[in-house]
Design a protein around this nucleic acid. Sequence first.
DNA 1: AATGTCTTCAACCGCCACCGA
DNA 2: GTCGGTGGCGGTTGAAGACAT
Length: 173
Amino acid sequence: MGMRKGPWSAEEDHILISHIQTHGHANWRALPKQAGLLRCGKSCRLRWINYLRPDIKRGKFSEEEQDSILKLHQSLGNKWSTIAARLPGRTDNEVKNFWHTHLKKKVHNANISGYSYTLQLQEAQASDGNGLASPSIVFCDAKLEENIGNHGSCQISEEMEFWYNVFIKSGQK
DNA sequence: AATGTCTTCAACCGCCACCGA
DNA sequence: GTCGGTGGCGGTTGAAGACAT
């Protein structure tokens, strides 16, 4: 009762930061009362962890970070905190949001209208000096293969490049 | 310029696990 | 063993800005 909700003001941020810097955050539930904030402990904790912590890394996710999220999500599922723990400076909330707004679409598009495809390293490129090779496409659906063949550079070329970066460069097939 | 639609992301909610009494 | 308090997690929401018409 009497608790504030919604976006945090700059003043509230300042109060929370200075309180944690001088007293720490041993007890989140007691913290707002001690600091003089009209927020619940959970809200203070979330604000600190997701936004105010000094080691937060903000800004766009790098290609490497995106690759890591995809690979980790593939093996761990929606374990956002576990995934975030492997990305220094990133929070579970940030990773989760990025997944839902960017990566989920890419994964979805990779299975266009129910078509599935896989990437394979071309045998002939096995001798590639740096171990990298351009991806070839093995379509699981003959109709899609036919369509792609008919249209030359197709809509999924960007997707192919993306998955190439994710899987092929990391040595997966 | 006005209005509608879509996208993004900070914040909230409910649930669960853990811990000490 | 159980109970209450607390922290942490994942799913979801909604405000604000971006973009399209």
